[in-house]
């Protein structure tokens, strides 16, 4: 198990290294001179030279890259060109909001996906199945930047149940979490259904039925427990997609998280903040995926064994 953990951590570290290089390169994809783009056309040559020096852009590319890694290793994320505050401080203020939204959305997704998936699998090829899977198809087909405004229109404007936007208390979390969690619920429920159907066809499930266990016990204890493995993997993968989707959802609901910071920074051409946001979200995704693999290995000893053999 320890060998598996070490190998997995080393693999994740390599990926993070690649992510850092790509995020570092982002600023160099700017059409033209990045300094001129950031400062605008009215900036004096002296201002441009000062920013170029401050960002280290006047040094050779490999030197810049090494300095970038060095700064990150010391958690020096730089300063925002717009607010002149340390980026680490700005991010620290925004992270709780995004974490709260992502967590709530994942919870919504799990709470919707499991009942839907189980009902669809147990009542295969009936109206229940078609209804659940119809919902799932609809869920992956409705973009969150359309679903968000629709929910606001229905539940905030017409019914007045929830605030239109902002982050003030539990009520303000509901609509953004449902918006962000629905697509994930849709994908997960399909996974729960197919995984459970596969397991319910196994011999040990037939044995469990043959020894007279109740259908409820067969499905929950013998079926669902073994159907969980692929669902856990999908949950980990989808948590990352959730972080990506949070960017748009935060904008729709004026949710003061990292996603909204990213979009604001793009429009203000505050590229160091853009880089920091992208890096933070991606590294979180890598770490979440790694933790998912650990949970997977913990639940399924076969994975540990395979890791040992690799």
């Amino acid at each position: 198990m320890i060998g598996f953990l070490v190998r997995r951590i080393l693999g994740a570290a390599l990926v993070v290294g690649g992510v850092v290089i790509l995020v570092f390169m982002l600023i160099h994809f700017t059409p033209g001179d990045p300094v001129q783009v950031m400062l605008g056309e009215s900036a004096t040559p002296a201002d441009q030279a000062a920013l170029r020096h401050a960002l280290g852009l006047d040094r050779p590319l490999p030197v810049q890259l090494v300095a970038y890694f060095d700064n990150l290793a010391h958690l020096r994320l730089g300063t925002s060109l717009y607010s002149q505050q340390p980026i680490a401080t700005i991010l620290a203020r925004r992270i709780p909001a995004t974490a709260e939204l992502a967590g709530a959305a994942a919870l919504v997704a799990v709470l919707l996906a499991f009942p839907l998936g189980v009902i669809a699998a147990v009542h295969k090829d009936t109206g229940w199945d078609y209804g659940s899977m119809g919902f799932a198809l609809l869920g992956v087909s409705i973009p969150n930047f359309w679903m968000g405004p629709l929910l606001i229109l229905c539940f905030s404007v017409w019914l007045g149940w929830f605030p239109v936007s902002g982050r003030e208390g539990f009520a303000s979390l509901v609509l953004p979490a449902v918006t962000l969690g629905t697509a994930m619920a849709a994908i997960l429920s399909r996974m729960v259904r197919s995984s459970l159907l596969e397991v319910l066809g196994e011999d040990y499930v037939r044995t469990a039925r043959a020894k007279g266990l109740s259908e409820r016990r067969v499905i929950l204890h013998h079926g669902l427990r073994n159907a969980l493995l692929p669902v856990i993997t999908m949950l980990g993968l989808q948590l990352g997609t959730l972080l990506g989707g949070a960017v748009i959802t935060e904008l729709v609901f004026s949710w003061p998280g990292v996603g909204q910071l990213l979009i604001d920074a793009i429009h203000r051409r505050d590229y160091p903040v853009v880089q920091a946001c992208v890096l933070l979200i991606s590294v979180t995704y890598v770490v979440v995926n790694m933790l998912t693999d650990f949970v997977y290995a913990w639940v399924d000893p076969r994975v540990r064994a395979a890791g040992r053999g690799a």
């Binding site: 693999g11 390599l14 990926v15 993070v16 690649g18 992510v19 290089i21 790509l22 982002l26 600023i27 994809f29 700017t30 990352g240 997609t241 959730l242 972080l243 990506g244 989707g245 960017v247 748009i248 990213l262 979009i263 793009i266 429009h267 590229y271 853009v274 992208v278 979200i281 991606s282 995704y285 890598v286």
Partner: peptide, 18 residues
């Protein structure tokens, strides 16, 4: 693997923005 480490639409947003 590195490209897959960027969740969903995030890299596209950053690239399109820059």
């Amino acid at each position: 693997d590195v490209f897959l480490a960027f969740p969903g639409i995030l890299l596209a947003i950053a690239l399109a923005g820059i």
